[in-house]
Write a protein that binds this DNA or RNA. Sequence first.
DNA 1: TGTACATCAGTGAACGCGCGTTCACTGATGTAC
DNA 2: TGTACATCAGTGAACGCGCGTTCACTGATGTAC
Lengths: 213, 213
Amino acid sequence: MSKKKYHHGDLKNALIEAGIEILAKDGLGALSLREVARQAGVSHTAPYAHYTDKQALIAAIATAGYEKLYAKLADVIQRCQASPAQQLVEAGWAYLEFAFDEPDHFKITFSGVIEKEKDYPAFVEISQKSFKLVVKIIETCQQTGVLPVGPSDLIAVSVWSLLHGLAPLILEEQISHTILDRYTSKEILVVSLNLMTQVKLDPPAFGLETEQT
Amino acid sequence: MSKKKYHHGDLKNALIEAGIEILAKDGLGALSLREVARQAGVSHTAPYAHYTDKQALIAAIATAGYEKLYAKLADVIQRCQASPAQQLVEAGWAYLEFAFDEPDHFKITFSGVIEKEKDYPAFVEISQKSFKLVVKIIETCQQTGVLPVGPSDLIAVSVWSLLHGLAPLILEEQISHTILDRYTSKEILVVSLNLMTQVKLDPPAFGLETEQT
DNA sequence: TGTACATCAGTGAACGCGCGTTCACTGATGTAC
DNA sequence: TGTACATCAGTGAACGCGCGTTCACTGATGTAC
């Protein structure tokens, strides 16, 4: 912890943290190797001891983002074991929360800022692990009739897409205010998921019926 | 058309075109005012006669993107008047096609690269007009029982989110190959939309049933 | 326990680069009389 | 139709900036004997 040590101790992770802070404070455009080094209190060439180039650091930051999502999802699965429908809603909400809490970290993680992702096996691995968690939730929902039967990975893609699209739309305020004034983000989420499920989710569906009246 | 004229004639639009070409050829990172001017065959300060700064040009390029989408949607509505379900699918496909054909133009248009969108009324206007077109399609689908009843603008947000999320997921190859090998992009789209609709869309739904078997 | 040495993790100067923007300017065009 | 002049749409030099990366280096640490 002492700041004067010549050797930092855990600069590799400190740089990731620094990067995340910069993203939170000044956004994607402000993320440079030099700024990250500055934030970590280290000379601007020190990062090269741990990352071959800027892309490598970005990949590490994105990987950390996925790890955060993974932890959130795992937690939801554990917490909501009793109710698959609730699992689905809370998983979706966890995703959106990440987007709202740390928009630019979210962006760098999920919006393809990292260029040749295949060069970063840790990133690929955690992203696949996360997707499998989503598939797992989908399958639980299918077994209890919350979601229709069918290839669970395909349905997972649909649900993931919905979340993946909803987040930026709300975040960038691309949804008109006539809607945002009427509904909270969570309500919009539940209504959207409701369109895909065969049973009503909690809270109530704002007049949406699965059969015409 | 003659290249030697001192006055360009329509530099304002030419710069937008140049920007779109740069996005197509070298991507978002290569889009600079200087490069745009170069591409348009004009000195690097000439753009300032037409745009107050870089953001203003980006806003104009994004506006052009929305105009393209608007035209596509309007065309779909006209072409598929007979079948609301087909309207829905084709509208979705039009959106995805844009993403696949011009990924970076798509990105700059829909992914919040433009910072203070409210400063650009033309952008706001065309984006709202486009959304209204989506709402219109949704309402047609509701009237024919393809989509459930309920607030059409809310359902439009759900559908828009789905498309908005699906595009980057496919584009950045964030969907695992075990899925992409089995289904085309259009099939994934139809299956996803099918989850939201009350009737089966064309082509067949790959084993997805709305009731459990 | 002491010492020699390899390795690791930092430093700071320097490089070349392209960028956005400002500035004083000039060539071309449109308009009033 | 001709002319004077304002305005418009360009030019090119110059600015300051922060960036990614390389380089020769050095201080700290770990290890073999």
